[in-house]
Nucleic acid binder design. Structure first.
Length: 222
DNA sequence: GCGACAG
DNA sequence: ATCTTGTCGC
């Protein structure tokens, strides 16, 4: 497919297969496990992020030690992006580069952090769920802006009558929105994201390092 | 009906 | 996400 050049309106429901893909995500949402599935204490945490230059995505995945934030492994993948950004269909752009990067890692990790929503999604199955189900790993969705849902006074986020997200705000005015990707409870996800945000930062350290690496990777001249 | 809408 | 310098503020 070569649709990246095509012009679409800001959030285009006319995109080919828009409704089909949404239905697939709705079906997949039933496979999301919202219980903690850890086999050992969490030692290693993986973070992934993608930066862009034109229609090329530069994806970086890193594994950090949870206690010291030491970087244990870091991989970079360059990948042509063939789809536009469409709200709700974020997976069209980042699913492939992220999976490619994750599959290049050789170290083990106990937890995966994805830059985007998990269950806090119109289909209850955002990018973090898609990746988490494919990898079959405890996965948390960490987004920097809200896509849907209502923030309540206790910082929980309600969607369609369920509590599917939590606001975590270590720096005043710079919150992240946490939701379950797979194999973890919302309560544990919130606690871990809190713990993984270093002082002076507002996003978890593994995602920050992945973000810095991918930007550096995207700006390297050839 | 209209607007909003992860990165 | 990205295009982009200096500048205001803690």
């Amino acid at each position: 497919m070569n649709r990246a050049h095509t012009v679409f309106a800001s959030n285009n429901k006319n995109f080919p297969y828009y409704h089909k893909i949404k239905r697939l995500q709705e079906e997949l949402s039933n496979k999301v496990v919202t219980k903690d599935c850890f086999t050992r204490p969490i030692r290693h945490v993986c973070g992934v992020d993608v930066s862009y230059r034109n229609d090329v995505g530069y994806c970086s995945a890193v594994i950090l030690r949870k206690d010291t934030n030491e970087v244990l492994e870091s991989v970079n993948v360059k990948c042509k992006i063939n789809y536009p950004y469409i709200s709700g269909l974020f997976l069209l752009r980042e699913y492939e580069p992220i999976l490619t990067a994750l599959n290049m890692l050789s170290e083990e990790y106990d937890l995966l952090l994805i830059d985007g929503h998990g269950q806090l999604h119109p289909t209850k199955c955002g990018l973090a769920c898609n990746i988490g189900i494919t990898m079959s790993k405890p996965t948390i969705g960490v987004a920097k802006s809200l896509l849907c849902g209502t923030i309540k006074n206790d910082r929980s986020i309600e969607l369609a009558g369920q509590i599917l997200g939590r606001v975590v705000e270590k720096i005043l005015g710079k919150p992240v929105y946490v939701s379950v990707g797979n194999k973890i409870s919302l309560m544990t996800a919130e606690k871990l994201v809190q713990e993984l945000i270093a002082n002076g930062q507002h996003i978890p350290q593994p995602l920050l390092i992945a973000h810095i690496n991918s930007r550096k990777f995207a700006n390297e001249k050839f």
